[in-house]
Simulated scan of single mutants.
Amino acid sequence: MKSYLAYLLVITASIWMTTPPSAVAKPKQSNIVKESPTNRIISPASALERLIVAEKLDASWFTPDFLKAVDKNSDVNALQIQRDITMKIGRFRYGKYRSVQSIGNSKYRIIFERAKPDDVIVKLAMDNSGRIAGVDISEKNKPAPTAQAQASAQAALDKSFKTNTRANGENSPILTSLKQWLGDYQKVQKIDATDYVGIFERGSAPVTINFKPDGSIENYKMGCPTTKVSRQQAPAELQKVLANCPNLK
């Protein structure tokens, strides 16, 4: 269920991040490049640390697709607000931020004051220009959503598939293309508290729902579909998204 598309196909207009607050002190020996990185490339670890501690985010740090997934107008201020909110959540759960630690395969531990080493793992996608293209954070001990929250989430996901819309009500070309490829949508099947599967006429698509601490939906992330239909039969725009799904031919 955790095999996500190339730049994290986010159905809502937000990203899921659980990072510490902007108010915490920066590490004394930070490797962050403080200048605007418009014409220089920094390491992924530095890019991730900068995302965590920077007081002001810069649009040039991210790919256009990433910004578009966060906000339809690609406004970096929307990402700034999302980052600030989720960083406060991170401080509440784990205490002060300490450092970023690489563990290979584009994954990093985020070390916090009260967290165990593997409590928060980040998978970071970067493009060839050193810009962030995707952020996927998993929490080992994230609180489970209530039964009521799960039921609401399943209903919201069902509505999204039926109407080809994101959770915020905006049209989703990806969902429209998905139906053209996999056929008519049938139902949402629950796997566990956060994982669901959208069932279509000719295949299925796994979806992970991330919840906020209050039980409301934070975002949906769709994984690689399962189908016997060739990827080449999908609409051109969808083929680009599916290119990094090793299970598809």
Rank of each mutant, 00 (worst) to 15 (best):
K228M: 09
Q232Y: 05
C245D: 06
P206Y: 00
T12W: 14
T18C: 15
I209G: 08
Y4A: 05
R131T: 07
V76A: 02
S177R: 06
Y108V: 08
D118P: 07
G215C: 08
L48W: 01
S172A: 03
P21M: 15
S106G: 09
N219Q: 03
A243C: 11
Y196K: 02
P21T: 14
P173M: 00
Q148Y: 11
V24P: 08
Q148N: 14
A125T: 09
V33I: 14
C224V: 05
L248Y: 03
N171R: 15
Q29C: 13
S177G: 00
V207R: 01
Y185G: 01
K96H: 12
A144L: 11
S160W: 04
T19A: 15
K88C: 09
K187W: 03
A6W: 07
V100Y: 00
K123L: 09
V135D: 05
P213K: 10
Q180A: 04
M17R: 15
K28V: 12
T38W: 02
I199A: 06
T227M: 07
K142S: 12
Q233T: 02
P173T: 01
T227W: 06
A193Y: 10
Q233E: 13
K221R: 15
P225L: 05
P206W: 00
N247H: 06
T18K: 15
S172F: 01
L238H: 04
G130E: 03
A149V: 01
V241Y: 02
L8F: 09
A25H: 05
S102M: 03
G203E: 01
S216D: 08
S172R: 00
V135S: 05
V197P: 06
A54W: 09
A69F: 08
E201I: 08
K96C: 11
T163I: 04
K96D: 15
K68E: 02
Y97M: 06
T86H: 12
L57C: 08
N244C: 07
L9N: 04
M1A: 13
I111D: 00
C224E: 06
P145E: 03
T163C: 01
S14C: 13
S22F: 14
I81N: 12
A125N: 12
I15C: 13
L5N: 05
P27I: 05
I110T: 09
W181L: 02
K107H: 09
P225W: 00
C224P: 07
K221Y: 03
A153T: 03
K34T: 12
Q101K: 14
K142I: 08
T12M: 15
S152T: 10
K56A: 14
K179R: 15
K221T: 08
W16V: 11
K123F: 06
D136I: 11
F200W: 04
S74T: 07
